[in-house]
Design a protein around this nucleic acid. Structure first.
Length: 444
RNA sequence: GGCGCGGUGGCAGAGUGGCUAUGCAGCGGAUUGCAAAUCCGUGUACACCGGUUCGACUCCGGUCCGUGCCUCCA
């Protein structure tokens, strides 16, 4: 069996993955803030870590994959004010939509999907620990992490505290001892969501939730922590600071999580997705328009850590691959088999999905002989191939009549008439496909 | 400005110190009455300039260009 190698952002090297406990591999990935539909970038993260969990499961008997739902956040509050819907209505609605949409993309539900609001007590506990260890202080209703108290701060992103301040875009607030200090807890007004705490009524800062949920559900240190590349700083840097300092691991940045995996950014037709450009591609919309497996194939068509440009052409190519798979697996048949060794090997090499797809194409040519291997390989990739529906899903008396007339002409060897009808329908965007079971047609 | 990442054939996208993937598109052919599908064949591409080397797309240095983060962000 090939050894799994992963690029570790913390060490900046590709490393052979060695679990802390081979009997139980633990993976955490930062999940979405549920205030809106997930976009294709969120979907990439979900697909990448779903795949990583699947690959891990081929090698280890027990794998726990946790990915959180952030359900307390200022953006959610803003959405609530805007729409008049309650916070709960919003978070419940978009959590369900997120899970449904990711399921369409072939993502299994994480083993644990903790919600921030269910872990406020755990967060308060960590904050208290940090205060007790002189890494945090209360000030003006806020509690802040004191960055200068953690010498190794910045080790993940390669950014020193001074450099962070040099950017001069960090919020300089009167209650901060140091401009780099970040919020662990902040006060809420009466009409804002909040919880009672030793520092008064308030709510947690953004970073603390992941420190709390990962520790509670996985224990420290755990094996792999993942998320989008943009989370590296400040989110993951701050998670490390909180978790290492609260757990007495100030000297070892890997005292929180051993391996850090970051997936690359998604652009759309060469441009950054943004509301102002109006080019945000929602997973929900895409899933209405294309089969989920096609989207998954498209998302995996570049290696996870590389940037991915989301284009019509890419979806089109994924669509063609999917159609080939559908044809190859049209007959139920041998469902047994293990995933192809070369494909597994490609995935074990830092999830090299493009290389795995090369193998997939070879398997496709051999599908007649070894459909079981192809099925098992697709299973591992999380690509669920659903047989194509019989072509003519719609019915149109005029077209059906012409198709029937053409079939009759063919039977009479009147090919001139048959071709005439083909051309006529083609002009209307109708394609006739002859099959052993008769002619079918579809709009193209 | 600081910290990163990357520049590979028409497009996408792996990879390797020497044998130069793969997919899509294109072209040629087989097959099919014609199509579709399928199959076969076909492209010495690795930003630029130096260096190391018997040999570099691959290692080192520099240049140019693109891009991400540094503020909420997957």
């Amino acid at each position: 069996m090939s050894a799994l190698q992963l690029y570790n952002s913390l060490t900046r090297k590709k490393e052979v993955f060695t679990p802390i406990d081979p009997d139980h591999v633990r993976l955490y990935a930062c999940g979405p803030t549920v205030y809106n539909y997930a976009h294709i970038g969120n979907a990439r993260m979900a697909v990448v870590f779903d795949l990583l969990a699947r690959v891990l499961r081929t090698q280890y008997a027990k794998v726990t994959y946790a990915s959180n739902i952030t359900d307390v956040d200022d953006k959610i509050m803003a959405a609530s004010e805007e729409t008049g819907a309650s916070i709960n209505e919003i978070t419940e609605k978009y959590t369900k939509i997120y899970n449904d949409d990711m399921a369409a993309l072939g993502c299994a539900l994480p083993d644990i999907q903790p919600k921030a609001t269910a872990h406020i007590g755990d967060m308060i506990k960590i904050i208290e620990d940090l205060i007790a260890r002189d890494h945090a202080y209360a000030s003006d209703g806020h509690v802040l992490f004191h960055v200068p108290s953690f010498e190794k701060y910045g080790g993940l992103s390669g950014r020193s505290r001074d450099e962070q301040i040099a950017g001069a875009r960090v919020e300089v607030a009167s209650y901060k001892k140091d401009p780099a200090d970040f919020v662990l807890w902040k006060p809420s007004s009466d009409n804002e969501p909040g919880w009672e705490s030793p520092w008064g009524y308030g709510r947690p800062g953004w970073h603390i939730e992941c420190s709390a949920m990962s520790a509670v559900h996985l224990g420290l240190p755990f094996d792999i922590h993942g998320g989008g590349a943009d989370l590296k700083f400040p989110h993951h840097e701050n998670e490390i600071a909180q978790s290492c300092c609260a757990s007495g691991s100030e000297d070892d940045l890997s005292g929180f999580a051993k391996v850090w995996v970051h997936n690359g950014f998604v652009t759309v037709e060469g441009e950054k997705m943004s509301k102002s450009l109006g080019n945000v591609q929602l997973a929900h919309d895409l899933a209405q328009k294309y089969p989920g497996p096609v989207l998954r194939l498209a998302l995996l068509s570049a290696q996870y850590s590389k940037p991915l440009d989301w284009t019509e052409q890419r979806i089109g190519e994924a669509g063609k691959l999917y159609e080939k798979l559908q044809r190859a697996l049209a007959d139920d048949g041998d469902a047994s088999g293990a995933p192809d060794a070369a494909l597994v090997e490609a995935l074990c090499d830092d999830l090299n999905t493009p290389l795995a797809f090369v193998r997939l194409n070879e398997l496709l040519k051999d599908a007649g002989r070894a459909p079981g291997v192809l099925r098992a390989s697709l299973d591992l990739l999380g690509v669920v191939v659903v047989p194509a529906e019989a072509a003519a899903v719609e019915s149109d008396p005029a077209i059906d009549a012409l198709v029937a007339e053409r079939s009759a002409a063919k039977a009479d060897k009147n090919f001139a008439r048959a071709d005439e009808i083909r051309d006529q329908l083609a002009a209307q965007g109708i394609e006739i496909i002859d099959t052993p079971d008769g002619a079918q047609w579809k709009r193209v």
